[in-house]
């Protein structure tokens, strides 16, 4: 299913020269649901046979509709879900067999930014503390050093030290997401899983956060797995894009290539359904969708 397109962008060419940072191979994740009786649980696969690589300094976009398994893939990499089959190798180390306690070294290298900035911060703690706790967990015992590094992280994401003493509810959504980014980046990770990291933000704030993520990548060389349902954002930020449908990865390729020359029928459908940024040609687009729908209906009737 995987289509490998030749390298076009010089940026990715440079990074391709390195070893991949993360290799996901034939990954499957299962989830249990209640069966007819409590001890009989139904098992179904949320994702199956998912394979991709992320190179150092690269942003891989992961798109798909709800239920396509894109978040599940990210959660498996973060070890919030167990893999049922396949492998995830980070810098050559197999991650799926690490056992119940994830080594701190992996936690340091792989961080996350979640969708809802409001609930990803502990409402009872001032936001400075979440960065402080993170450093403490990773063995930074000297409070002075913790403070200095936290201040530096806040400064990096465009917040002042004054913000460190506020509670999450006293910050705007964009500011909350900046704190979440500070927490993720204070450990200087190599990979950050951004799970719908800007979806809950307003349009005017989205741009700020996307620019911030790009700036930080330029400085630190961090890689992103950027999970989103909004194709416009993914196209803007990603070097390569992977498309998922019903638990399978159906297409992966260079971002521009995938947008201008989609190979898989589902990718075409997804692109066709995304609202355009201008009203021009909307009647034609509507007509095309209508034709597509009728064709699809005719197909199902024949079948």
């Amino acid at each position: 299913m995987t289509t490998t397109t030749p390298n076009t962008s010089h940026e990715t060419e440079a990074s391709r020269a390195d070893e991949p940072l993360l290799v996901v191979e034939d990954l499957a994740v299962e989830y249990e649901s209640a069966g007819a009786v409590p001890w009989r649980r139904k098992v179904s696969r949320a994702i199956d046979g998912v394979s991709f690589e992320i190179f150092p300094g690269e942003t891989l976009g992961l798109v798909g509709e709800s239920g396509s398994g894109k978040s599940t893939t990210g959660r498996a990499i973060l070890r919030l879900n167990d893999a049922a089959a396949g492998s995830i190798r980070f810098q050559g180390t197999e991650v799926t067999t690490l056992g119940r306690r994830t080594p701190l070294s992996y936690r340091r290298d792989v961080q996350a930014i979640f969708q809802d900035p409001n609930s990803s911060l502990n409402p009872r703690h001032v936001v400075g503390r979440c960065v402080d706790d993170t450093l403490r967990t990773h063995g930074v015992t000297d409070p002075g050093e913790r403070r200095a590094r936290a201040e530096q992280a806040f400064d990096q994401v465009g917040l002042s030290t004054d913000h460190m003493h506020r509670f999450p509810a006293e910050l705007s959504g964009g500011q909350q997401q900046r704190v979440a980014i500070a927490r993720a980046l204070v450990l200087e990770p190599k990979l950050v899983v951004c799970d719908e990291a800007v979806s809950a933000l307003d349009l005017s704030t989205q741009g700020q956060i996307i620019n911030l993520l790009a700036d930080l990548q330029a400085i630190t060389g961090v890689s992103y797995l950027f999970i989103a349902h909004d194709l416009g954002i993914v196209r803007h930020i990603s070097d390569r894009i992977a498309v998922m449908q019903r638990g399978h990865l159906v297409e992966i390729g260079e971002a521009e290539e995938l947008f201008t020359n989609p190979q898989h029928a589902y990718t075409r459908k997804l692109l066709g359904a995304s609202p355009a940024s201008k009203p021009e040609g909307r009647d034609e687009r509507r007509a095309r969708r209508e034709a597509f729908r009728q064709m699809h209906e005719a197909e199902t009737q024949l079948a």
Partner: peptide, 20 residues
């Protein structure tokens, strides 16, 4: 999500339960 974030950061279960 803040509990999951604490996991991702690598906090111990005991710390998450009592401090978070």
């Amino acid at each position: 999500l803040y509990v999951e974030s604490a996991h991702v950061v690598g906090m111990k279960e005991r710390v998450i339960i009592f401090r978070q």
